[in-house]
Design a protein around this nucleic acid. Structure first.
Lengths: 194, 194
DNA sequence: CATCAATCTTGACAACGAAAAGTATCCACT
DNA sequence: AGTGGATACTTTTCGTTGTCAAGATTGATG
């Protein structure tokens, strides 16, 4: 298995890249370092991804497909608010992927695979919002997506933990953020008196 | 004025960097290119900023101070929802700054100047939320900040325009996003029947 | 067992951020 | 007026990075 042909270099490179990005951010990603870790030459990735942008695109596609699956699962098991919480949970659980998925300045946004994967991941959230029966559907979609994306982003870059005094005290921060997201999302639901 | 001493190199570098980041993103920022544009050597910035991280920190501080001013102005002239819209407007008007302000992986987050500037920019938003009189104040803060930050982020990376079919048709996109943010924020206000 | 395409390596290149050491200009003090 | 020192910028060098062209190795197919 350790010969000239790696056998599963594509996945190995993606996994290595995710690990680095999770730890140090995408700016610190060195494909040469990842390759050295795996034990291949510094240009081995080019056959599979073409360029650095290709690696990030593959990561973004993979992340969107993973997110889509999570959201579909949450939609099947619960209601709208669970889909929103699942969005935040995905971001906190897969920070390496999430850090790349929306960085259009680092990606080839015309890649059909990426476009398709993005549509797939967004669909469950939009469907969930529809069940709210809001008067302004577009506004509700934007509000829901905005809240979960904003909370996820702010939590990941540490701003949320730094700014809010009370509930975010390091230990089990992921669970706290999820709970916070749930409380925030519930404000979007029309007060339950029909 | 065009001698050995530039006179205002610090501001010139910041302006040049903002321009590049606005056009091509922070990953494409080359301090050497900025220096060449200005007409100084490629290490001239080190006296003023120390390192590349120093430049980005200065940009983040500047951005937060600008944002704080905008939000204070909106708070003085309007109510909570105007503060939220001003947040989105700032992001769309100053994408170069906004792209750096929350990138903790690129910044020295222990910089006292940055910490102070961040607190200053966040205060008006938190104060505005308080006027809503929500039962769960923390949830309202997170929801409000999350919505405006999420909408701004999604709009800036093009995801919002790509995903929503209706209202975002390129032309005058900034105004459209602002209007959308206002509609989304209004969902956070308890329906006006006391 | 001979090809041949797929996969990985080698070597070279330009661009980048960082660092050390040097040079020019300005300012304060006499 | 002139001089000493601090401030602002330059030059040179270094290690690292992504990219590219060309070559070496392997496994599958006939």
């Amino acid at each position: 298995m350790a010969g000239y042909h790696h056998g599963n270099l594509r996945d190995a490179i993606l996994a290595g890249a995710v690990s680095v990005i999770t730890r140090d951010g995408v700016a610190a990603l060195s494909l040469r370092a990842v390759a050295a870790d795996i034990g291949v030459s510094h240009t081995a990735f080019r056959r599979h991804f073409g360029s650095r942008e290709g690696v990030l695109n593959a990561l973004a596609v993979q992340g969107n497909l993973m997110l889509a699956e999570q959201l579909r699962g949450a939609a099947a098991a619960g209601e709208f608010i669970d889909v929103g919480v699942a969005y935040v949970r995905f971001a906190l659980t897969n920070p390496g992927h999430f850090a790349v998925m929306f960085r259009s300045d680092l990606l080839d946004n015309d890649d059909p695979e990426l476009i398709s994967a993005r549509a797939e991941s967004l669909a469950p959230l939009r469907d969930g919002v529809r069940t709210l029966g809001a008067a302004d559907v577009t506004a509700a979609e934007v509000a829901a997506w905005g809240v979960v994306h904003g909370v996820a982003t702010l939590a990941l870059n540490g701003t949320l933990a730094g700014a809010l005094d009370g509930p975010l005290n390091a230990r089990d921060q992921a669970a706290d953020v999820e709970a916070l997201a749930r409380r925030a999302l519930s404000l979007l639901q029309p007060p339950t008196n029909p």
